[in-house]
Design a protein around this nucleic acid. Sequence first.
DNA 1: GGTGTATTTAGATTTTCGTCTAAATACACC
DNA 2: GGTGTATTTAGACGAAAATCTAAATACACC
Lengths: 92, 92
Amino acid sequence: MGFPDTFKALSDPIRREILLMLRSGPLSAGEIGKNFDITGASISYHLSQLKKAGLVMETKHKNYVFYELNTSVFEELMLWFSQFRGEKNESI
Amino acid sequence: MGFPDTFKALSDPIRREILLMLRSGPLSAGEIGKNFDITGASISYHLSQLKKAGLVMETKHKNYVFYELNTSVFEELMLWFSQFRGEKNESI
DNA sequence: GGTGTATTTAGATTTTCGTCTAAATACACC
DNA sequence: GGTGTATTTAGACGAAAATCTAAATACACC
């Protein structure tokens, strides 16, 4: 947890792609993995990084593990970035 | 340039700290370096990463090199993150 | 032109990261 | 209980990142 882990997690293109996928709702590890040319073990590694960063949450059903976005962390990130905004456009 | 480089640049704690410093205005490479326990060469490396990512711009005066925030890239990042916002709080 | 200060570049080294294979774990369902 | 599917863990390995030292570059100023 903590910002260091969060930014680290966001630095990998595969992990960012996973986050984009999850916008439309929870997906199982296997469904996520179908979209990439890497092994399930590697997908599992990326998911663990995202979880450690607090960017996703997991829930287990049957022998599937579902992942979904944790939107509250994105709110915190937006807040962090807003520190750097110029004076104008404060209404975005 | 491009998002991959930008996120990569943000993944390092020293580089994030440099960005925070620059909020109050431009600083020379040397002034930035004073705040860290690493060599000037390493600071120069981090600054080059930030510049490659488009997060900072440099200007030269005398034999100093000043760095300052490039706020427009932060706007783009905010936009990227806004993809993940929940339905509520659309007015932040 | 020579000296001093600021910064970057080059090259080597250590650490961290992403990936793989193989094995382990966890369930479901018959 | 045994078999099959889904996922994670462990350990090894190559690639990439962060750091250092030493040398190079770029100015300023006398």
